[in-house]
Design a protein around this nucleic acid. Structure first.
Lengths: 223, 223
DNA sequence: TTTGGTATTATGGTATACCATAATACAAAG
DNA sequence: CTTTGTATTATGGTATACCATAATACCAAA
């Protein structure tokens, strides 16, 4: 129990935040297709907010890389080519390997339990989870790894990178039905980290991402 | 020679772009101190633009991590603690090592010449360069490495990370007078890459960053 | 000195109005 | 029928004005 009263850190959820969240989700989930124009005034009507809010949101998403500005045409949903996806996977690979390694080195009883719990939750409820729920559950697992490693900035970057390629995820999921190697890999990763074997942890993450990447590559046999 | 006429890809430099550039520079150069409030209307007056532009700019810089939003107080220049700077250096280290390695593996005569030219420019004109010019010249050198490696997304990330810690740069420069190991390290890096020795290149980059990092650490003996 | 109220300020949010440009449609001329 | 020029429309870009709220500072009273 803390002495005195806890500070109330009520952070007001601004309209912007909500709009940002919704538009980001919409892009990630594929409701807006790559190249699709994001015309401001219709968006205002749809979301019931003013143009200012929409425009600020678009600026934010532009910085995140989800939206591009076509000169004299306005914002469009970013295209994603293999050329870029490949780089994104490579960066994620580095960041995740480092996080797993450090996390394994810093492993504690509690952290190990949290990791196992997250994985168990993911495996048990996999069947009756929507795509978004599954995404969040997986994300929770990885977040534990990054926070366990003290790599919160890297975690933020990974999330952003992930958002940019997440439109592929719907494809990979639907076409390959997750190939079932995903969960296995995660189990191996979890075990290695909990055992404090940083080398094995790093290795397991690398293999997992190589796998995911090769699947994605087959799908993007375009530019 | 291309057949017919080249497409003119005139991208209009919008007001936003200019304001973004100027505010980013101002933060990076330390004209705005960490924690300083960025009050919108005075900024409008100073820059001679409308609030809309300022607000959009702030959203963008917020996504970049240079600006934070204090609830019910508005935007402030982000604080920077060693806890975060350390992570940023670590990430940069990974990305730059990878870029140097790949660049060395892909080395060509022309690329080697460009690299050497960039470094020569940097060394020759070092004395009569302003801090910003020196920054840009250094940046040009690294950009060659990243583009030579085909890591343009990583390059973008490195630039952003660099912006966030660049306020330290003014400190490191002024207090240690650049210790003179910087140019030496860059020479080693350049030589290794041009020789196609990817292992040495990667190693040289790592050493350089370890060095920079240790300098920064001494300065940020705070939180 | 502490309490309480008031005035100011900055912000988030909204609504418009205006202009320049790009796309489109359409009409006129060859 | 094709080409050229023009008019319309949609849109992005910019600038202002307005309101409600929260934070702050300041001042007066107990």
């Amino acid at each position: 129990m803390s002495k005195g009263l806890d500070k109330i850190d009520f952070q007001p959820v601004t309209l912007r935040d909500q709009v940002q969240e919704r538009m980001r989700e919409a892009i990630i989930e594929g409701h807006f297709k790559p190249g699709e124009r994001l015309v401001e005034r219709p968006l205002c009507d749809q979301l019931g907010v003013s143009r200012t809010v929409i425009r600020e949101t678009i600026r934010y998403l532009e910085a995140e890389g989800l939206v591009q500005i076509a000169p004299n045409r306005g914002p469009i949903v970013s295209y994603l080519y293999w050329k870029e996806a490949r780089q994104i996977y490579a960066i994620r690979r580095m960041l995740e390997m480092a996080a797993a390694e450090t996390c394994a080195a810093n492993i504690s009883k509690e952290l190990a339990n949290s990791l196992r719990a997250a994985l168990k939750h993911l495996n048990d409820d996999r069947k009756d989870m929507s795509a978004t729920e599954l995404y969040h559950a997986t994300s929770d697992f990885y977040e534990l790894i990054f926070s366990g490693a003290g790599h919160d900035i890297a975690w933020e970057m990974v999330q952003r990178l992930h958002a940019r390629i997440s439109r592929l995820r719907s494809l990979t999921l639907s076409t390959l039905e997750r190939k079932k190697t995903g969960p296995e890999h995660m189990q191996v990763i979890c075990d290695a980290i909990c055992a404090g074997d940083h080398q094995a942890a790093s290795q397991a993450v690398a293999e997992h991402l190589d796998d995911v990447m090769s699947v994605a590559e087959k799908l993007l046999a375009d530019a």
